[in-house]
Amino acid sequence: MNRTLFALSAQAVVGRRRGVVLLLLPLALVGLAVVVRLLTSDAVGVEATVGLGYTLALPLVALLAATAVLGPEVDDGSIVYLLAKPVSRHTIARSKFAAAWLTTTALGALPLAVASLVLDSAHPGRALALGAAGVVAGTVYTALFLGLAALTRHAVVVGLLYTLFWEGVIGSVLSGVKWLSVGAWGREVGHAVDDLVDAGGTGLGYAVVAALVVSVGSVWFAGDRLRSFTLRGDE
């Protein structure tokens, strides 16, 4: 971790229009929770509301954050200014991950817990569990998308296809997708904290190990890609 890189990356995440959209996502979620709470009497809407936050808002926040810290700089080549320094490229990747991770946790995972509290204040354990699930899934998403951003210019589209198409559409048809679904791993952890959260169906051990392996592996991969970063002329 490098403080300067962290600060620069954080500035890239929250800077300008991206920051607006990043804020709108959790606001929409919590706003929805408040509206649902006002419309209904008991905790009916938790599943629908939080499910939306967990399967859509969280990965989108992670995608925006992870691609913000790496995408534009790699795209236009100006990352050379950061790379031409006596700093390990893995440190650079880790610092960028830290900035993106903090964003995902604050604007992706935390709102899940808040929405759950708004809708179902009787079960703070549920909010805690959802927060935990969000943190786990958010961590893996962020790392995964960071690795993607270091790999391809189309990281955003690939990331969207992964979350929306693979986890969303295919995952709802073929249950085997859960083994390769970040969302299922996070839910498994949430389930271990409180049974009100549905289990992902992979078993806690597998979920934790898979989440760890993918997170650590992706951040390492991003660093390794940066080690081979190639400067090109203007095309």
Partner: peptide, 17 residues
């Protein structure tokens, strides 16, 4: 938003969210 990746996510966020 003329940043490509960002425009993609913003559009999807609008439609899907």
């Amino acid at each position: 938003s003329t940043r490509r990746g960002f425009a993609v996510v913003a559009t999807i966020a609008f439609l899907v969210i």
